[in-house]
Amino acid sequence: MKNHPEARAQDLKDAFYDTSIKGIICAIGGDDTYRTLPYLLDDKDFINAVQNNPKLFTGFSDTTINHLMFYKLGIGTFYGPNFVCDLAELDKQMLPYTKRAFLKYFEYHNEDCIESSNIWYEERTDFSIDAVGTSRVEHLEEKGYEVLQGKEKFSGRLLGGCLESFYDILTNTRYDNEKAICEKYGIFPTLNEWKNKILFLETCEEKPKPEKFEKELLTLKNAGIFDVISGIIVGKPQDEQYYEQYKEIYCKTIENKDLPIIYNVNFGHAQPKCIIPYGIETEVDLDKKVITLKESIFA
């Protein structure tokens, strides 16, 4: 797979060409999804298939690249469970909160709330066959949603992903050609596209140290999006690593005290996780600490 991004791109093409397939669940995230872009966005047949036969698409982490590609092509996707991390849970069943979220893919809701889980789980360190059937280490959620700054309510359509993926798109830190390829295909949304959006943002399993985290956040700041968005929804850091430090860095780096930020939301690399639907009109009530999707996730 490392040596053949064209084969990975073909898997996605085949899924869209097959009209019997209704949904696509990413296996996992990865770290070089950008290498599939030329094989996808230079293919008019693939673009036509996506736009004329849209499908449910779910995944997170480096899959941010796919989500932004589909956003560019005009279809909504879901920053949500993937196969290896969630459906292939080593315990006897999926984590209950994640399962309830996943089942929403099969239902229709005109309006829905994203509620805080009352339990959070540590990420596993043992993924061997010996771990099959064992439970995760769980903790009572003592904090719930935290308001870092802002008051009353803010609203907008959802757009975002993994902070490390954004950083890789905007720099050449991980791969020396990623920035150029993403710029060629216009993967990072323009400032006009970010205007009045709610940015959802979370950190990956690498658990970036505070110094690196601040550098990543500054890259987004320098891109100008904190000047145009309506607010930020921040995911729970995996294992609550650097939980308090990240809070301080958000407020210090963004500087704009009028920009609302709600923190510790269950999505992305946190366990358990909800689904965040791209492009859906959403309202966040900071006083009540409630996140409400104002239209069906399939709108």
Rank of each mutant, 00 (worst) to 15 (best):
H4V: 13
E6H: 11
E6F: 11
A15S: 10
I24M: 07
I24H: 00
I24T: 02
I28E: 11
G29M: 10
G30T: 14
D31Q: 13
T33A: 14
Y34Q: 11
Y34C: 11
R35D: 06
L37S: 02
Y39K: 08
L40G: 12
L41C: 11
D42Q: 14
K44Q: 15
N53V: 04
P54A: 07
L56G: 01
D62K: 12
G76Q: 14
F78Q: 10
P81V: 02
N82Y: 03
F83T: 15
L95R: 06
L95H: 06
Y97P: 07
R100Y: 09
A101H: 03
F106E: 08
E107G: 12
H109F: 10
N110L: 09
C113T: 12
I114F: 06
N118F: 08
T125K: 15
F127N: 10
T134R: 08
V137S: 15
E138S: 15
L140E: 14
E141F: 03
E142W: 06
G144Y: 11
E146P: 03
V147N: 03
G150T: 00
K151V: 11
G156D: 00
G156M: 01
R157T: 04
C162E: 12
F166R: 00
F166N: 00
Y167A: 08
D168C: 15
D168H: 15
T173E: 14
I181C: 14
I181K: 14
E183M: 12
P189K: 06
T190C: 12
L191Y: 04
E193S: 05
L201S: 03
T203R: 03
K207I: 13
P208T: 01
E211P: 06
F213C: 00
F213L: 12
E216V: 07
L217H: 08
N222D: 15
I229N: 03
S230E: 04
S230F: 01
G231T: 04
I232A: 03
G235C: 04
Q238C: 14
E240S: 12
Y242D: 08
Y242T: 07
Y246W: 01
Y250K: 02
I254Y: 09
N256I: 11
N256G: 01
D258T: 07
D258L: 08
L259M: 07
P260T: 00
N264P: 07
V265C: 08
A270H: 09
P272A: 05
I275Q: 04
Y278E: 10
I280D: 02
T282N: 02
T292F: 05
L293C: 03
L293N: 07
S296Y: 07
